[in-house]
Amino acid sequence: MEARGKERIRDFATYMGFTHRKITPLWPQSNAECERFMRSIGKSIRAAHTQHKNWKQEMFTFLRNYRATKHATTDVSQAKLLFGRNIKTKLPTITPKYQDNEIRETDKRKNDKMKNYADTRRNAESSDLKIGDTVLVRQDKQNKLSTPYNSNPYKIVERNGTMLTAKRDDGHMITRNSSFYKQVKIPPTIVNSEKEQEQEESSTQLRTSGRMNIAPAYLKDYVK
């Protein structure tokens, strides 16, 4: 059933001409625009329910006003970008002229500003994890005795930007953002001890000392 559902989504994307891009699990920041919009819709539905109004009608009213309002990032309403004109609302408006290049430059400038602000607040650092590294995966806290990271180590097998896929020895795979991983290094003593053990197992010849044993002079009378 799951495979059939994925096939239908793939066929629908091909038919409509868009690319279906998966986001990182448990990382809503990668789909922040949709997450923030769902928050606004939920607020309007709760307000309609509190005022005993038809929530579907109020949701349509909210969507109409949202699409006619100038966007904070592009400085242009979504209806203007889609239809090339502003849609009619109950508020009087003046339609200014915009250039497509100006909108793109404004969008890029404000997106970069928001990213720099978020990175500064979170003390974000670039991840240097690469394929083949041994890592631990952050886990949810179940009780006071649970550790922040799962003690079973994984190895990075795939990287797509900040989305990393790791695999465990038993075959279990997990995909998370790079902030969910903590790199661990195998101590050199363990590696050296394993090599020494292999050398001892492969060697069958015993070592003997070449030193000659000579009896001391005061024992000459006792030596036959």
Rank of each mutant, 00 (worst) to 15 (best):
G5K: 15
E7Y: 15
R8W: 14
D11F: 05
F12M: 13
G17F: 02
F18S: 03
T19W: 08
K22H: 14
T24F: 07
P25I: 03
W27P: 09
W27L: 12
W27T: 12
P28I: 00
P28K: 01
A32K: 03
C34D: 12
E35L: 03
R36D: 11
I41F: 06
K43L: 03
A47C: 04
A48I: 04
N54Y: 02
N54S: 06
W55M: 00
K56M: 07
E58R: 02
T61H: 12
T61I: 10
R64N: 01
Y66T: 02
Y66V: 02
Q78Y: 13
A79G: 00
K80A: 10
F83T: 06
N86P: 04
T89V: 09
T93L: 11
K97P: 06
Q99L: 09
T106Y: 04
R109Y: 04
R109F: 07
K110N: 11
Y117I: 12
A118D: 10
D119P: 09
T120E: 15
R121T: 08
N123I: 07
S127Y: 00
L129E: 00
V135P: 00
R138A: 05
K141E: 06
K144Q: 08
K144L: 09
Y149T: 01
N152I: 14
N152V: 15
P153S: 05
G161P: 05
M163G: 10
L164G: 00
A166D: 05
R168W: 02
D170L: 03
D170I: 00
M173Y: 05
T175G: 00
T175V: 00
N177G: 04
S178Y: 14
S179F: 13
I186H: 04
P187K: 01
P187L: 00
T189C: 13
I190Y: 11
I190L: 07
Q199L: 11
E200D: 14
T204F: 14
T204H: 12
R207K: 15
R207A: 10
S209W: 05
R211V: 07
R211N: 15
